[in-house]
Design a protein around this nucleic acid. Structure first.
Length: 351
DNA sequence: CGGTTTTGACCGGCGC
DNA sequence: GCGCCGGTCAAAACCG
């Protein structure tokens, strides 16, 4: 609720003027209403989280409704970088940092910063393209989405059950810990479900196979929660989508085919009983040799319809693993975000 | 000494 | 029109 206030006023309407005054031109070429923001929640004890990028603090404010000050940072990796971020502790849980990124980096980043940056920029670009796509579909829910231009990604190191109060607030909760799996077990989806896991990918992706409604990306190398599979629930209508996917996926393709997103999107938006989705996202990064290693989280999103007059939306994390981040996994993270967002569009439509 | 942080002032938008 | 509020500026302080 308190973050809501902050979101509505970020970025400020006078930002363009200031950017122009400062000689910047990146922002002035964009419609401010179209600038995407990606908000990340991190369970973090330190004042700020190291996301691998260089930031300079340029202001601090006490925002209404939150005793914790909000800090304002600019990216200093490149002199003319338009990227800014806000950092504030969650009033409800002081151990959670809410980091809001605005504008994707238009310059090279340190390798340690690529994971977060690629995830947030993927989310942002997906929002842009997703909003226009959604708008063309002519649904009221998608127009709501297009005016929001905001994703909240929640990336705590441990499980958080998060409830977001109302649309168009979009919360992407990419949580991870083992306890959540147990919680997940107590909370099985009661509706038709779409699960998408691509957690086993390496740079030389293994061939995709399909059997019994399960699309596999090689062998699952980590644990049983990360099956490396794309599986659809048991709703009768989904048979159509399965065959659709089967037809449109090239088993020898090494990167996620664009059709996969379209197919999954179609499946989600066509299924009136769809109520939940699994997603995967990239959360953190470190450098190992000359490669970036990131933590990928797999989670399950639920919409709790029954006995929930206010339409409660929750997300439960499922599993995590360490993966090398390459163009392939980035693409998948993007795809997962697209699918997740599409699911929200669908849910909003049902609502 | 150069870069960063701190902090009060300032500005513009918005609601009443 | 006025006050509130969020965001930014910029000078001073701080720091390695």
């Amino acid at each position: 609720m308190k973050e809501e206030t902050a979101r509505e006023n970020f970025p400020p309407h006078n930002m363009l003027k200031n950017i122009v005054r400062n000689g910047g031109d990146e922002l002035s070429q964009q419609n401010p209403a179209k600038r995407a923001r990606v908000s990340v929640r991190v369970r973090c004890d330190t004042p700020t989280m190291n996301d691998g990028c260089q930031w300079r603090k340029y202001g601090q404010k006490i925002a209404k409704g939150n005793p914790c000050p909000r800090a304002y940072y600019r990216c200093t990796v490149a002199p003319s970088s338009p990227v800014r971020k806000q950092v504030q502790r969650c009033a409800d849980d002081m151990s959670i940092l809410i980091i809001t990124y605005e504008i994707t980096h238009n310059h090279p980043l340190p390798v340690s910063a690529t994971a977060m940056a690629s995830t947030t920029s993927a989310a942002a670009s997906m929002l842009m393209t997703g909003s226009s796509t959604a708008r063309s579909s002519g649904t009221t829910s998608s127009s709501t989405l297009s005016t929001t231009n905001s994703i909240k990604a929640i990336l705590p190191s441990e499980f958080i059950a998060f409830v977001f109060p109302s649309f168009p607030t979009i919360t992407l909760n990419l949580t991870s810990n083992s306890a959540s799996s147990a919680r997940l077990g107590n909370f099985p989806p009661r509706y038709s479900t779409i699960n998408l896991n691509f957690s086993s990918l390496e740079s030389n992706a293994l061939p995709i196979s399909w059997s019994n409604g399960v699309l596999s990306y090689g062998n699952p190398p980590y644990n049983k929660n990360q099956t490396g599979s794309l599986s659809f629930g048991s709703h009768p209508q989904e048979t159509l989508y399965q065959s659709y996917l089967q037809k449109n996926l090239n088993p020898t393709q090494q990167s996620l085919p664009p059709d996969t997103i379209a197919a999954a999107t179609k499946a989600i938006t066509s299924d009136p009983s769809f109520q939940s989705a699994s997603i995967i996202g990239c959360a953190t990064a470190s450098t190992s040799g000359n490669q970036t290693v990131g933590t990928y989280f797999v989670g399950q999103y639920y919409q709790l319809l029954q006995n929930q007059p206010d339409f409660v939306h929750q997300f439960y994390s499922d599993a995590s693993t360490m993966l090398r981040i390459d163009s392939n996994t980035r693409e998948i993270a993007t795809a997962m975000l697209v699918i997740y967002m599409k699911s929200l569009v669908k849910i909003a439509r049902v609502q």
